[in-house]
Nucleic acid binder design. Structure first.
Lengths: 406, 406
DNA sequence: CTCGTTTGTCAAGTAACTTAACAATGATCT
DNA sequence: AGATCATTGTTAAGTTACTTGACAAACGAG
């Protein structure tokens, strides 16, 4: 049916089967048996057995408990050997830096958040990332030698081949800087560079709200607004890596100036900056709100979210307005790409229904019925960790690729 | 890198390789040699040779001329055997019916256009399709026995498994009607049912403006407005087959009522109906235009397009306005999907730059720079035949599947 | 005319599966 | 409780579909 015009096979059959089996083991909660793998992959049990032998021999896969019987011998459940190595996931935002150290089954050992100013440029920022990571590792009695791979997310369009970003609106000075090569050299470990929203989608798909969904959109609402798209079970990056740039859809003609140079972008009316600005305006206009206790120029979106959760009406109104704008864009996204799930993440999304309800309403009102009925809209369950968990998943992917290709 | 979580392999390796080889032969203009196939598929020449032997033995593949030498023996170019069978492509629109009879290399033998009223419901319409097709075939001294497969496009969301449409705004009475089963029984030939915009994308990708593009969006502007999306070389249909419903993006808040029940949809302000309505309003308001010669209630989008091509200013203005609305939607699509090409097709698109320029301008002004720079926006080169050619391609796909699985 | 290339083919070898049979284990029926 | 039937995982032999390596045919260039 589809235009199957497959590109050259980059792996041989055995390697590909190993990767698929490893992924099924990784992403099946509670483990999976050889027999079940055989059924799902449409191979025989004997074929699976020999492959598992290979993987167990290298120490990548473990036998754990027996599963429940279904009228016969109990299955032996398999899991990834968590102790096979350590992986680092890094989420770089416009104003924050999240670092996670995890084992091979993506179990988080330690996580930290630091402030960061991306606009300081690549050299300074990457030096800070390096310093914080090393400190975090030494705290765990680990060093870079123990890290098998690193996943890194950045808030801009990524050129996969080059390992750099291209013309990122909120990362001035980073254009074409060889981020991946720089870090790989510095750390002597493989590094995967991706867009942060993309990683959010991957994280929520693997261990969050969108587990196993075939068509998932993850909307990251932070300083910028971006979407990560998982279509037909595959990450979709677009021609130049800038797919999912929902933040720069025009929502309000002649609206406020956006960092990208246009006017009225979603990001400029519903991003973290816009939320802070509107809250500040409300304070200035003398409205009664908890936010008055903060110097007007220092109000952040996080403050607004906190106030809203404590019941502050002005803060709630600002967020509802942002949700309505978001909803208009999400309704378009739902019409274009008919996902089974939309996950809203990023710092602001923690306020929950206050932001989600306007989005759901807009989708109900503006999207085509058959698409609107098929989609569930929820908040990220990994919270502000979606992207860094996604980065860990990418890191493990990369490590597995290296380990198996031998 | 990607989450490779492949579904069960539905074909064995040999069958899959045969399909891929056939597709490379089909879609390489001028034929392709065994050696070139080997290089592109990353197989050895001997492997390709045995597969080609198989295919030639069944009569699916032919040796044609020798290609030019590059310092050694001249390659033997291969092509699909056009005489292996006949295939039918059908494009059902809201108000028209296009039927194409083609050979196995998608060369069109005969094509016809008929008026049609989809709102008459499935029984009447499919009976008309049947009658016209049989007449067309007999004109070629063929009968349904000679037809190896049929591809059919309809203007609504398609449920692939069921072979029906679900809640189509412009196909009242067709909801859940078993279109595919009905026709397969009637014709005793395999039928592939798809969305018409999807087929337009496929047609333009295979033999039109978007040849070989990896990320292609085809926008069909007719009575309805829909998009067909080809992402990473694969057709993308969405969760319930309603991906690409760009026509029901809200463009003008509180705008005119759309067939879908919402207000201000793109389709309601830039679709064929809207174009006709706005032209009618211009005539009524007494503006000077060739369209005055037509009874106001009988003006169609086609009339407007014709007048515009003859230089009628009012008609041109109506189309430019439609183009601007289209551009707003396309700019959003470009931000979300970052395609390498957008092809504009459907009846109205024949006016060319009059419609395209406003779209290009909107994309330049409203889309993120890295996405806007990567995309080319052109008119369909297959004209109003995009979808029916796409239907032929689908038909051949289906026939090949049947022929090879044995 | 010779040399280096490229194409297509053939025979032998190999990777990676399937088939078929079996032991171990557990649920279910009487 | 015992017999029966399912289910899981393993093993050995067979098969598929490729690769390797060698070779003849065909062509351009020095």
């Amino acid at each position: 049916m589809d235009a199957l015009f497959t590109s050259p096979r980059l792996m041989n059959v055995r390697t590909l089967n190993k990767r698929v089996i490893l992924n099924m083991i990784r992403f099946t909660p509670g483990g999976i048996s050889r027999a079940e793998l055989a059924r799902q992959m449409d191979l025989t049990r004997s074929a699976i057995s020999t492959i598992i032998d290979d993987l167990a021999h290298v120490g990548l896969v473990h036998e754990m408990d027996n599963g429940p019987a279904t009228g016969g011998r109990r299955p032996i459940l398999l899991e990834i050997n968590p102790r096979h190595g350590y992986v680092v996931g890094i989420d770089m935002g416009a104003s924050h830096l999240g670092i996670v150290v995890a084992d091979f089954s993506a179990h988080v050992l330690e996580e930290r958040e630091y402030p960061l100013a991306v606009e300081a440029g690549p050299e300074k920022c990457l030096a800070k990332v390096d310093a914080q990571l090393r400190e975090l590792l030494s705290h765990l009695n680990l060093s870079m030698e123990d890290v098998m791979a690193v996943g890194l997310g950045v808030p801009g369009p990524v050129v996969a081949d080059a390992g750099s970003v291209s013309a990122p609106p909120i990362m001035p000075g980073w254009d074409n800087y060889p981020i991946r090569d720089h870090l790989q050299k510095q750390w002597n470990a493989p590094v995967a560079l991706s867009n942060d929203a993309e990683l959010g989608a991957l994280g929520e798909w693997a261990y969050g709200a969108g587990r196993g969904e075939q068509n998932l959109a993850y909307i990251k609402v932070g300083t910028g607004i971006g979407a990560g798209l998982l279509l037909d079970g595959q990450m979709y990056r677009g021609t130049t890596g800038s797919a999912g740039e929902i933040g720069h859809i025009t929502i309000q003609d002649g609206g406020p100036l956006c960092t990208c140079g246009n006017h009225g972008c979603l990001e400029a009316v519903a991003g973290g900056g816009a939320i802070a600005r509107k809250a500040g305006e409300a304070v200035r206009s003398g409205r009664r709100t908890q936010l008055s206790s903060i110097p007007v120029d220092h109000i952040t979106a996080r403050d607004v979210a906190a106030a809203a959760r404590l019941g502050d009406l002005v803060a709630q109104q600002v967020l509802t307005e942002a949700g309505t704008y978001l909803g208009i864009a999400v309704a378009s996204l739902v019409n274009l790409f008919n996902p089974s799930m939309v996950v809203v993440g990023g710092g602001v999304s923690q306020v929950g229904d206050l932001l989600l309800e306007p989005i759901r309403r807009a989708v109900r009102e503006r999207s085509l019925r058959s698409a609107a009925q098929a989609v569930r809209i929820t908040a990220a369950v990994l919270g502000r960790r979606s992207s860094s968990i996604g980065a860990v998943v990418q890191g493990i992917d990369l490590a597995l690729d290296r380990l198996i290709e031998v």
